[in-house]
């Protein structure tokens, strides 16, 4: 018989699913509130934005906020596409670099034996607890000493080592059975091979989750643009959107802020839709039966 794998997603709706859906639907309604809100809010005309009592839904949707936002960006010296490019470049490189480093470190910390392993893990845990606000200024000093101010590296490097991601990935690497790795060693695989051929495919869900996490942090990060970079042309889209919304911190700014929030939110949505299948289906096929 041909291998069919575990069918995780049923293709059709069946009666047996009814009870689960009945349980989920009310919660879905609650969880969906912010999403509905962010979409509604961006399309609200002025009088609905400031209506009292505040309205949740939009009644007369307009594109007014978006046109205002783009108009405001046109008057600025640097085109919006520049900021968008910066943001995409920075986010992509941080996500790629940090995933590579994280999985490598997690593999070593979890499966290889060397001195000081426990201590390294402790260090990571300690770093995890520390609020990033507190290290902001010392970090700036470091960036300054390294001569990174006003480069892309100032955006990228401070964010690459994300303790949360390591913590998460390591938990998953721990669960990869040792016997699988031993078998590979016996067949003559090097450490690098084990890492590439066994560890990475087996922890794909964790990698996808970590990717979403890292992306979210980097994409929404304004700290680096605020403090480490002076050159306007090197700042990120998030920073720009925020300043636009805050600069006209009047009534008009509110609508633009809502529109900006929606625009910043969409990439998260897209990434999640792309990665979510990875989060789910890979695990079913891998490992030992």
């Amino acid at each position: 018989m041909a291998y069919r794998g575990h069918k995780i997603n049923p293709q059709r709706f069946e009666k047996s699913q009814l009870k689960i859906i009945a349980m989920i639907l009310p919660i879905v309604f609650v969880m969906g509130l912010p999403i509905v809100f962010i979409f509604c809010h961006a399309f609200k005309p002025m009088e609905e934005l400031f209506a009292y009592p505040p309205q949740f839904f939009v009644y007369n949707p307009t594109f007014e906020n978006f046109t205002k936002l783009f108009k405001a960006s046109r008057t600025a010296g640097i085109p919006m596409s520049r900021y968008a490019f910066n943001s995409i470049l920075i986010t992509a490189s941080v996500v790629a670099a940090s995933l590579l480093l994280t999985t490598m470190a997690a593999f070593a910390l979890s499966k290889l034996r060397f001195k000081g392993k426990g201590m390294l893990m402790q260090i990571n845990q300690t770093a995890l607890m520390f609020v990033s606000v507190a290290v902001m200024i010392p970090r700036y000093l470091t960036v300054n000493v390294l001569g990174l101010t006003d480069t892309y590296l100032a955006h990228i490097l401070p964010l690459v080592a994300l303790p949360v991601a390591l913590f998460l990935v390591k938990q998953f690497v721990d669960q990869v059975p040792d016997s699988l790795i031993e078998a590979a060693y016996i067949d003559g695989a090097s450490d690098w091979h084990v890492y590439v051929r066994i560890i990475v495919p087996m922890i794909k869900p964790a990698i996808a989750t970590a990717a979403i996490l890292v992306f979210q942090q980097v994409w929404g990060n304004m700290e680096t643009s605020n403090y480490y970079v002076n050159d306007e042309g090197l700042k990120t889209l998030t920073f720009y959107m925020n300043t636009l919304a805050n600069a006209n911190n009047t009534v008009a700014g509110q609508g633009m802020a809502a529109a900006a929030a929606l625009i910043m939110f969409v990439p998260n949505l897209v990434l999640f839709i792309i990665l979510q299948n990875n989060v789910m289906n890979t695990m079913a096929h891998s490992g030992i039966k």
Binding site: A108, V135, L157, A161
Partner: peptide, 14 residues
């Protein structure tokens, strides 16, 4: 395997 990670952590966190 840990080295690149460690460098990042030492410089920008520790």
């Amino acid at each position: 395997f840990v080295l690149p990670w460690m460098i990042g952590v030492v410089i920008f966190l520790l």
